[in-house]
Design a protein around this nucleic acid. Structure first.
Length: 198
DNA sequence: TCTTCGATTGTCT
DNA sequence: GACAATCGAAGAA
């Protein structure tokens, strides 16, 4: 089942934690690929000094203020795309950065986009998974709750609570405390040999 | 295995 | 004009 919009209309930390194990599905002209989310970070409102919305609403971050359950895709470092899920109520800027997934379907598509790279390294970083799944700014604002959307998130596997770990967020070095140390990164580990049983 | 560093461009001040 | 929610190659150990 595809995740409902109400799933995203909750505190962003809750959404980030519960996204672990969910199934990210990318459809491209009949082809599709999917993976289970294994790492996510939450960004929570204008007061969060690590959040793109810390300086208020701009053209770039406008999507974060919009409807929950949509994708916020942005470009950074001159070459990388990042995928986020918009959360919380309309008008409140919050989103979950999808940092890593565990590939389970569409290996041909991902290997095509990540040539010469080991499978375990295809999607183990936020810019890596967007490249493997061909996620770019064209998908900014796409509805993740729509069954016919080219990018959506469905129910996946249960992640035992005791395997979920947290840490400070990554790559936000110039962020002041307490935001720098907020334990808003959630991750788990799915065994290397894990394959979907269906 | 670890650390360092260059790439490269949209966005905001 | 500065910098960015990063990656991957290269070199050292």
């Amino acid at each position: 089942m595809i995740l409902s919009r109400n799933f995203y209309k909750r505190p962003v930390q809750t959404v980030a934690r519960e996204l672990l194990g969910k199934r990210l599905v990318r459809q491209i002209e009949g082809n599709f690929a999917a993976g289970y989310i294994v790492e996510a970070e939450s960004y929570d409102g204008e007061q969060d000094q690590a959040c793109h919305a810390r300086c208020g609403r701009t053209h770039r971050n406008a999507m974060m203020y919009g409807e929950a359950g949509r994708a916020y895709v942005y470009f950074t470092y001159g070459m990388h795309w990042m995928l986020n899920c918009v959360c919380g109520n309309d008008g409140y800027p919050a989103a979950v950065l999808i940092r890593a997934i565990h590939p389970v379907e569409g290996f041909d598509l991902m290997s095509k986009n990540r040539p010469g790279i080991k499978e375990s390294l295809w999607c183990d970083g936020p810019a890596k998974l967007t490249k493997a799944l061909e996620i770019t700014g064209e998908l900014n604002g796409i509805d993740l709750c729509d069954p016919i959307s080219p990018l959506k998130i469905e129910d996946g596997i249960d992640i035992p609570v005791n395997t979920i770990q947290t840490s400070a967020r990554i790559g936000i070095q110039s962020t002041p405390e307490p935001w720098l140390s907020m334990p808003w990164r959630f991750f788990t580990i799915i065994p290397e040999n894990f394959k979907e049983q269906v």
